[in-house]
Computed example of a mutant assay.
Amino acid sequence: MIGSAATARTKSQSFYGHFYIEHNRGHHVRVATPEDPASSRYGENFYQFWPRTVGGSLKSAWNIEKKRYARKKQHPFRIGNDVLNAWLMSAVLWGAMIAWLGVGITPYLVIQAVVGFSLLEVVKHMEHYGMVR
């Protein structure tokens, strides 16, 4: 899956690589339904939406990969797991940045990650606000 690797690399700076899995294999299937954590509800402001979508998307991505490996009768904790692969790329990138610039860079990495994925989530909130099917 060349596309998934490329997208996971672009999300590695924000430790949000699971987004690719959830967005394409979860959100696109369940958009505008109560099961979709990435669809904002009518009357739900961004601060209510943010924790639900961040936690729900992570949980959804993990469950998608877990089911994929269950079909293969394999344990999901393996390098081919797209969620773990994305996290590994993030850990390597962050580790390299900390090794190069020192541990003092860590708060800046965390801040840029939270701001980065929050901007993504605010766009999703606006795009899907109140949609129901």
Rank of each mutant, 00 (worst) to 15 (best):
I105R: 06
N81L: 08
V110Y: 12
E22K: 08
M97H: 00
V31T: 15
A8T: 04
M89W: 02
F15G: 05
V122T: 05
S39F: 08
T53C: 13
A96V: 10
H23V: 09
I98R: 10
A113H: 07
D36S: 14
R133I: 15
R78W: 03
A96I: 08
Y47M: 02
Y16K: 01
T106G: 10
S4C: 06
S57I: 03
T53E: 11
I2N: 15
L84Q: 06
A86C: 04
F77G: 02
P34G: 09
D36Y: 13
Q112T: 15
I2E: 14
Y42F: 00
N81K: 07
T106V: 15
K124L: 15
M1D: 09
A32G: 13
Y129T: 03
S60P: 08
K72Y: 03
Y108W: 13
I98W: 04
E127N: 15
K11R: 02
V114S: 07
R71C: 01
S118I: 04
A113N: 04
T106K: 13
N24C: 04
G95D: 05
Y20F: 11
N63D: 07
T33V: 11
H128I: 09
L120Y: 11
G43R: 00
I111F: 15
K124E: 15
W62C: 03
V54T: 10
L119E: 05
V92H: 00
G116F: 05
R78H: 08
E35M: 11
L88C: 12
V31P: 10
V123S: 09
V83L: 12
K73Y: 01
H75I: 02
P107F: 06
L119D: 05
W94R: 04
D82N: 11
W50L: 14
S118V: 05
F117R: 08
A38T: 08
I105W: 05
K67P: 00
G116P: 01
V114F: 11
T33Q: 12
E65C: 05
W50Y: 06
G116D: 01
G130L: 01
F19I: 12
G95T: 06
P51T: 01
